Amino acid sequence: MTTSRRQVIAALGAVPVVAAWPGLARAQGKIVLGFSQIGAESEWRTANSESIKSAAKEAGIELKFSDAQQKQENQIKAIRSFIAQKVDVIAFSPVVESGWGTVLREAKAAKIPVILSDRAVNEKDDSLWVSFMGSDFVEEGRKAGRWLLENMKGKAGDVNIVELQGTVGSAPAIDRKKGFEEIIKADPRFKIIRSQTGDFTRAKGKEVMEAFLKAEGKKINVLYAHNDDMAIGAIQAIEEAGMKPAKDITIISIDAVKGAFEAMMAGKLNVSVECSPLLGPQLMQAVKDLKAGKTLPRRIVTEEGIFPMEVAAKEFPKRKY
């Protein structure tokens, strides 16, 4: 792990505060924010985009929004376009962790501050962005692992786990795997027997789960999915194979979108770890603070919970996404 990566995922109380970005214009008038979104691969991402758009409108910030359709080259083009348009602030959710150094240096040279939203980057020079806001993905993986160990206490013998990973090279896929493995390694009975990317999509989650079932069949005790959409796709595959999701196979996923709560209420998903997409208001406040010459914390962590099947019906009416 590089120094920059450690700093990015440091606890709130331990992170330094950075000075206001040099050269940031303070002229009166509308603030212009360029935002590059990954795409619309899941319920979570759609809710995240909507939160950013509605919060920008409410804050009176002019938003230049670009959908990268899950391609890094599209995000890099969008960031270069924002630089050419001389926006006040650039924010983006990086589709993968690496390969951002050149374009971030271009933004810095243009004196345009960059905020990382939802996902981190892996670059040695951590002066290339002013703040990273979003969830602690490693802790989400740990929460999933802790729930599993606690709920399998009485089970005898090995616990065979299949894992649906997120997009290869993305921060949540790397970190959710790391956090989960960190917890389950405490008990040698817990074994990941298959692990493959489902690219955070429902269709790919179903496709990969079908392959897992063909290869391992009834040996599978647990499915750990890096997001709810893949879990929901996998549930379809499990049912089509003549098995009962959440009974024959314990299912753990991450995000806690409405679709996951519906699956839990239907008795088909055991637990979902929360990852809130509602970052819009927080992002707009950070943009305003930067424009006003204020300082930002290097790391802004979102507070989140965990929702087992038993509380789904009670919590569902409160869900905003």
Rank of each mutant, 00 (worst) to 15 (best):
I232D: 06
A241C: 06
A225P: 04
S272Y: 09
V222A: 03
L279V: 12
K268W: 09
K258T: 14
A260W: 06
K288V: 02
E274T: 07
P245T: 10
L269D: 12
L278W: 06
K268P: 03
L279T: 03
P277T: 07
A234N: 08
A246S: 14
D255H: 09
E274M: 13
E262Q: 15
L283N: 00
E240F: 00
N227D: 14
K247C: 01
I254M: 05
G259I: 03
P245E: 10
E262W: 00
A237Y: 05
Q285E: 15
V273R: 09
M265Q: 15
D228P: 04
K244M: 02
L283Y: 00
D255E: 14
C275Q: 13
H226D: 12
M243A: 10
D289C: 01
I232L: 15
L278V: 13
I254K: 04
M264C: 06
D255N: 15
T250H: 08
A237F: 10
I251S: 06
M264N: 02
I238Q: 10
K268G: 01
L279I: 13
G267Q: 08
I235L: 04
M243Q: 11
A260K: 03
L283V: 06
E274G: 05
M264H: 02
D229M: 01
P277Q: 01
P245F: 04
L290G: 11
G259M: 04
I252K: 00
I249F: 12
V222E: 10
K258D: 09
G242Q: 07
G267L: 08
G259P: 12
V271T: 14
E262N: 14
Q236H: 06
A286Y: 09
L290A: 09
I232R: 14
L278S: 12
V222C: 08
A263Y: 03
V271D: 01
T250K: 15
M243N: 03
D228Q: 11
Y224K: 06
K288R: 13
I254E: 12
E262L: 14
A286P: 00
L290R: 05
I220N: 07
K288N: 04
Q282G: 06
E274Q: 15
P245D: 05
I235N: 07
I254L: 03
M243R: 11
M284Y: 00
A237V: 02
I235V: 14
S253E: 03
M265Y: 03
E262F: 08
A234Y: 07
L269Y: 05
P281R: 08
A256N: 08
A266H: 07
A231V: 09
P281G: 02
D255T: 11
N270S: 15
M264E: 13
A225Y: 05
K258H: 10
L278M: 14
P281A: 11
P245Y: 06
G259N: 04
L223C: 04
A241K: 14
A246N: 14
G280L: 01
V287E: 06
A225S: 15
Q282S: 12
I238F: 01
A225H: 05
M264P: 07
T250V: 15
A225T: 12
G280I: 03
I220F: 05
M230I: 04
P245Q: 10
I249N: 05
Q236N: 10
V287T: 02
